[in-house]
Design a protein around this nucleic acid. Sequence first.
DNA 1: GCATCCCGAATTGTCAACAAAACGACCGCT
DNA 2: AGCGGTCGTTTTGTTGACAATTCGGGATGC
Lengths: 255, 255
Amino acid sequence: MRGLPLASTGVNAADMIPRTQRTPIRRPTSAVRSGRSAEDRVFTAVLDAILDHRLAPGTKLVERDLSEILGASRGAVRAALRRLGHDLLVELRPNRGAVIANPSAAETRDLLEARRVIESALLQRLARTLSAKQLAALRAFCADEQRAYDRGDVKTGKRLSIRFHKLIAELAGNAVLDRFMEQLICRTPLLARNGGRLAAYCGAQEHREVVEALARRDAAAAVRRMSAHLDSLERHLTLDEAAPAADLAEALLAR
Amino acid sequence: MRGLPLASTGVNAADMIPRTQRTPIRRPTSAVRSGRSAEDRVFTAVLDAILDHRLAPGTKLVERDLSEILGASRGAVRAALRRLGHDLLVELRPNRGAVIANPSAAETRDLLEARRVIESALLQRLARTLSAKQLAALRAFCADEQRAYDRGDVKTGKRLSIRFHKLIAELAGNAVLDRFMEQLICRTPLLARNGGRLAAYCGAQEHREVVEALARRDAAAAVRRMSAHLDSLERHLTLDEAAPAADLAEALLAR
DNA sequence: GCATCCCGAATTGTCAACAAAACGACCGCT
DNA sequence: AGCGGTCGTTTTGTTGACAATTCGGGATGC
């Protein structure tokens, strides 16, 4: 019953049985299967679902449901939710559970301004320090990204588009700013209720232009390109309400 | 016995009794006394001790000791330590407990660079948007700070010096950058093993110069002043090892 | 002298049961 | 119909007990 995706109907058979009669959690198998701790598995499962736009803002995350779906104890789920809450990826409402965070218009504006500030600083630093090897890595990454879109693999393309910004942060060599960027990047998909179309504005072309400006050691141009990139992203966000996931299990277990 | 500072000897009478024979935790009184949750009390007790240089990097934080000292359950202590760990204020070593974080030279450099990046952005924004009321608040704050130092109240002075940077972040009106600044500010005392002398380099005079540049709407000058301020702070850090607190209870309960 | 092993104490990690709170459906009342 | 109260169910919060791991000291062997 666990991971079987029978939810194209939007109805789960488990919903028919009272909660108290359901079979208890089975943990050993899946806990052993992965090397990471149960808490990490829950954390990354929810995070990945957010990054892939499989979990929309506002979706309720019930502890027992998560523990059954992911084969973790409730304690592990709680710990993971606390971490996600601390990163502002989920909103923790005392005594009322956790929901996927639903950033306001003000938060959206602030987050994108923060990205402009930090990514500009990263690029200015990178324009000075970039090694030939690092430049090659950036170019190879953009090529991968472009290929994914070219062959119609939008899912992979979007993941790589997200990781491009993380790569910039890593290469800049400041661990503190790198961590901040990771947090901002992970929250960005929550701003976009129109997940599908977002890809067009975080595409390989604009990334390549940033990289080529870096290759010329033209910090100002790189910053300009990146700002324009984030501007267009911001302009094309829709703030409409998105529908919460019909089936939590499907959203969390999709690979 | 709880809060009595009898530790000038460096020895605590409680250390003489085996752990298993000690009286259990008394919680109700202190839990009721403060409106906040037990977890919050532990969190702020440790944080305040870090900010006041009462807890040196490397100090071990044993869960049961904290729960006895602060009258909280072990669960609450664990949750607070997780939060502190997430903010990089304590290092969580799996199965080996938590210690006050001990930033490396590289982390020190990165953190101060991050502060320059973000505080510069905040000031540039503030120079444009600062209202007369906000300017008055900044000037009043600097006056308070100066008065504290003038009357020899270094403890209050240092606390206000820290909060000055937080005030800048709040006035700038970007919640995301404000939160980042809070994290950076809270970690900064960990960089300074010479807590006492730090005050001289985070004093009211340099803060006032920043404010006056803002008053003239001279963003460039404000940024210059702030960068110089952070530069001098960085130059005067000593990376020597500091002695861990002799008595954890005294360090945590001091007001 | 020095490294290694082993054991008991101390400490952290985990869980399952219990307590408390919030939600939702139902019902009666105006 | 609309409002407000009540009760059972669901869900979150907390605790205390137990399991697993690490730490420190001392004995042992080289």
